[in-house]
């Protein structure tokens, strides 16, 4: 403990490796609400590597507000027994690199803000976690006013906004590398330690 007091430098990350599938996934991990329930929307897509191949051993986690814009702080994400909306979920990718979540569509967490999902991505071959956001399409004024998006070139801005599918679901691909590389984020306190 004396070590800790003297040195609060953050513990480094390491890759999730190839063998997490028997440990981190659990029943209904990607079902923040049961598929088919009123108001349920599917957020799905693929994780791709720099050659355009699906990454079959990635893990995607999301954290987001409920439709009213409130961020739930309630337990139950693992057992999912009480039926409370916890605003957090976890999805492995399948052999094609596809992930999916069944959830409620987030509302903006502040007046005039743009609604989004906070996302972390892990994978074998990826030495540390990546953060990004998936913005909900539709409110063009809010998206245009969003500080992060406003600071990006048009193509990168477009790629941080999910695509609304004809059935109402949301599509968002993660590109770890390449021409369509996803915009990944760093937050102020991350920069204490690089």
């Amino acid at each position: 403990m004396t070590d800790l007091a003297a040195d609060l430098a953050p513990t480094p990350g390491q890759t999730i490796g190839p063998f997490f599938h028997y440990a981190l996934p659990y029943a209904h991990d990607r079902e923040l609400v049961p598929p088919g329930r009123a108001g349920a929307v599917r957020l799905h897509g693929h994780v791709y590597d720099g050659a355009g191949n699906g990454v079959p051993d990635a893990l995607v986690e999301i954290r987001h507000a409920d439709p009213s814009g409130a961020v739930p702080a309630v337990e139950g994400s693992i057992r999912r027994e009480g039926g409370a909306f916890t605003g957090w979920g976890r999805s492995t990718t399948d052999r094609t690199g596809r992930y999916w979540f069944s959830t409620l569509e987030p509302g903006p967490t502040r007046a005039g803000g743009a609604a989004c999902f906070a996302v972390t991505v892990f994978a074998r071959g990826l030495l540390n976690r990546l953060f990004t956001r998936v913005y909900v399409p539709g409110d063009d004024a809010a998206l245009a006013a969003e500080p992060l998006l406003a600071g990006l070139p048009a193509d990168e801005r477009t790629r941080l906004v999910a695509v609304r599918e004809p059935g109402g679901d949301l599509w968002f691909d993660v590109h770890l590398q390449g021409e369509r590389e996803t915009v990944f984020l760093s937050f102020p306190r991350h920069r204490d330690c690089t």
Partner: peptide, 15 residues
């Protein structure tokens, strides 16, 4: 083939 080539974009956390 699995590392981003661009530096992460600074963002202020919210929500």
């Amino acid at each position: 083939l699995r590392h981003p080539t661009k530096d992460p974009r600074p963002a202020d956390p919210e929500g």
